[in-house]
Design a protein around this nucleic acid. Structure first.
Ligand SMILES: [Zn+2]
Ligand SMILES: [Zn+2]
Ligand SMILES: [Zn+2]
Ligand SMILES: [Zn+2]
Lengths: 157, 157
DNA sequence: CGGCTTCATATGTAATAACATATCAAACTC
DNA sequence: GAGTTTGATATGTTATTACATATGAAGCCG
């Protein structure tokens, strides 16, 4: 077999087999996957222990190919994979603030950048002497495609 | 014993004994506490099972008296306890966006609101049809009081 | 060059720690 | 007695530690 699994020609530096498997699973998923969900999916491929998953995830998140959703304890593939090209949000090289909008109905995740948000946080931080190393910004709610609520409530005031 | 422990005259609706104990521990703490750290602290007071802590925390967070930090799996007392009065951030009644700046050196947490951030998120959400139910916004980094880094690095280029 | 050591990185496996919830029964309040 | 709070046990889920092994590149020595 070839030196390493390059696996999906993402332009990514060659990933190892486990990393490629985990990233592949994340890319195919419609919703974020927990480490143990990944493990279940990848048992067929020979992965057996949580650590194999966590190690791959650590590398993938460090490379910006996957992201951890803190409010879910789960992971998604980066939405900008294959080339952040025409995209206003090159969070590879520069590290801009990534935000996630997570639909609690369908599980879908949108990854976005919003300059005003980033600027506002920068303002607060510098005026308070806080030096952020990482920012977690996750919106939980309902996406555009999902109807209001599965809840029964009296319509009146 | 009296009806319920009102415990600290916070103007809060009367808390149960366990809720008061948990809130008291959070208020005394210098840094966020995990549920199990709370449990350890409160064993002396008779609490014995995780569920007792989690039940209290659920109520306290619902009341806005405590907050969960998702990126830490830990909890803090609300910084605005005792009366959000002169404070520009009445996140009791109205639910404004709360943000947290968490120092990774000393563990200190600052709770803040920043209108530009909130507005920026609102803008993104409405233009994308996303209806947020809850927003998680946590800055991880170094606070004003903590020196740069405990790291040794060669100074040269 | 071929074989050896060395080093760095990636893997595999087991055990355990840390975080969170389910279930059910007793007690207390109204 | 209904509703709530509580307590105790058990279980489920997420993450890490510790240790052993594999793999491949680089440098050395015959
Ligand atoms: Zn991304
Ligand atoms: Zn949706
Ligand atoms: Zn607060
Ligand atoms: Zn600090």
């Amino acid at each position: 077999m070839a030196a390493h699994a390059r696996a999906h020609a993402h332009g990514a530096p060659d990933l190892t087999k486990n990393q490629a498997l985990v990233l592949g699973a994340l890319e195919k998923a419609e919703a974020p996957l927990s480490a143990y969900a990944l493990l279940d999916q990848l048992r067929a491929e020979g992965l057996r222990a949580p650590l194999q998953i966590y190690r791959a995830l650590e590398k993938l998140t460090a490379l910006g190919l996957a992201h951890r959703l803190e409010s879910l304890n789960a992971f998604v593939a980066c939405a900008h994979r294959g080339g952040h090209g025409g995209h206003a949000c090159p969070h590879d090289g520069a590290h801009r603030l990534m935000a996630f909008a997570i639909c609690e109905s369908c599980g879908g995740v949108e990854e976005f950048c919003e300059a005003a948000v980033e600027q506002g946080l920068k303002t607060w931080a510098s005026s308070h002497g806080f030096r952020p190393a990482k920012t977690v910004l996750e919106l939980r709610g309902l996406c555009a495609r999902c109807p209001a609520r599965p809840e029964a409530e009296t319509t009146g005031a």
